[in-house]
């Protein structure tokens, strides 16, 4: 087993970190609207679903872009 770090580790970390922050914002938006604006809560839930579905699909190669490609030999 190689002890070389996986090349896209930190690109994946950054992608997921950004997504988690956006997901929390959508949840907060939905909770804030729950008593007064059902349509806004529904939109927030739909946004949550889109983001969670993206993670569940696990298409890491699409998320990390060039960071996931092998580096050309020097």
């Amino acid at each position: 087993m190689s002890l070389q770090p996986v090349p896209f580790t930190h690109a994946l970390d950054e992608f997921l970190h950004d997504l988690v922050r956006a997901l929390h914002k959508a949840v907060e938006r939905g909770i804030a609207a729950a008593r007064s604006d059902q349509a806004e809560t529904d939109r927030a839930l739909a946004d949550c679903k889109d983001m969670i579905d993206l993670v569940m699909a696990g298409q890491v190669e699409e998320w990390v872009g060039d960071a996931g490609k092998p580096k050309p030999a020097a």
Partner: peptide
């Protein structure tokens, strides 16, 4: 959705340690 966000974030925190190794 919030629970999922937190679990995805926990995954991220362990996965980065694993990826570095």
């Amino acid at each position: 959705a919030r629970t999922s966000a937190e679990e995805i974030d926990h995954f991220r925190k362990f996965a980065v340690l694993a990826g570095d190794l």
